[in-house]
Amino acid sequence: MQQKIQGKFIVFEGIDGSGSSTQASLLYQYFQQQQIPAVLSPEPSNGIIGNLVREALRQRLQFTKDPEKFNRQLAYLFAGDRHDHLYNEIDGVFKLLGEGIQVITTRYYFSSLAYNANNPSEYDFIYRLNQDFPDPDLVFYFDLPVEISLERINRRSHQEIYETKAKLTQVRQNYQQIFQTYPGHWYQLDATNPPEVIHQKILQIITDLDFAVESGLD
């Protein structure tokens, strides 16, 4: 009996406007074209807690007017949603991976560290909240200057609470700190390049990695 191949957990990260959702969709379409089982499963998830987080980010739901308390509350909610996203028995990440499905996620615990930490104390708190979550098989980090991020965001019909110059500047700095010490498989990509150029780079990286052969991507 042929052993089922474990799926791979691929994460896309970057500040708002960096194109991570676009690239995740392009990779998903590529997998579909190659008849490789795959799902797009972003965070916040589509679960109960994830929907609560989305409402808070859109400022349709307000827990407190205190920014420090708001960040801490969101950090707890993100962690709860992340646990559900990974481990729920309906469409959780690990259930899908066990079925040989590639899981593409936009945002993971890296985003919590980048967006919800405003100082070293908060960073340590959020790190502890997320320290038991497993590392993904591969992370793509899309680096983008804040000025370009804001230009792209301003074209949208609505903006979220974290989409300000001061916040995104701090988030970008946090991302750089995170990936300076992250020991897993990750690649930084220049998000100012055209989407198709970035997509081809992602495909090249994936097909060059050993795990891509195991997933049937060769």
Rank of each mutant, 00 (worst) to 15 (best):
Y87L: 07
R82W: 04
L40A: 04
H83Q: 14
K95Y: 12
L61H: 15
I36E: 03
I49P: 07
L61T: 10
V39K: 13
H83A: 14
D81G: 01
I90L: 07
L96H: 12
R54E: 05
L138W: 10
V103K: 10
E55Y: 09
V93D: 00
R152E: 05
D143R: 15
L86E: 08
N71H: 12
Q62G: 01
L138P: 00
L113V: 06
A117F: 13
A117N: 12
E147I: 00
L96Y: 09
D81R: 04
E89W: 02
P44R: 15
F142Q: 13
Q73M: 11
P67R: 13
L52Y: 06
Q33F: 02
T106Q: 13
G100E: 02
L138S: 02
D81T: 00
L113D: 09
G80D: 00
Q34F: 00
N130T: 05
N130R: 10
Q62C: 11
A79Q: 15
D137I: 02
P134L: 14
G98F: 03
P120C: 06
L144M: 13
E147G: 02
A79Y: 11
F140Q: 12
Q33R: 12
A38H: 02
R60I: 03
Q62L: 13
F133E: 07
Y30L: 13
Q102F: 02
L40S: 09
L52T: 05
L96Q: 15
P42V: 07
S112R: 11
F125T: 13
R152I: 01
L129W: 13
R58W: 08
I101F: 00
R60G: 04
S112H: 08
P44Q: 14
Q33M: 04
R82A: 03
A114S: 11
P134W: 15
K69V: 07
V53H: 08
V139F: 05
Q102M: 12
Y123T: 01
I148L: 14
N154M: 08
F31I: 00
R60F: 03
Q131P: 04
Y87S: 09
Y127S: 08
Q33D: 02
I101H: 03
Q33I: 00
P67Q: 08
N116G: 02
I36C: 04
A114V: 05
I104K: 12
F142R: 13
I148P: 00
Y109W: 14
D124K: 15
N118R: 15
F140P: 06
E43S: 10
L144W: 12
P67Y: 10
D135Y: 10
L74D: 07
E43T: 09
S121P: 00
K95F: 08
Q35E: 11
E122H: 07
L150N: 07
L97G: 04
E99W: 05
D135H: 14
V93W: 01
N130Y: 03
I148D: 07
I48T: 13
Y115W: 04
F70R: 15
L97A: 06
T64H: 11
F94G: 01
I48S: 12
Q131H: 15
K65M: 07
Q73D: 06
G98M: 09
Q32C: 06
D137V: 00
Y76P: 00
G47K: 04
E147Y: 00
L61W: 15
Y141A: 00
R155S: 06
K69T: 11
D132V: 03
Y127H: 09
L96W: 05
F140N: 07
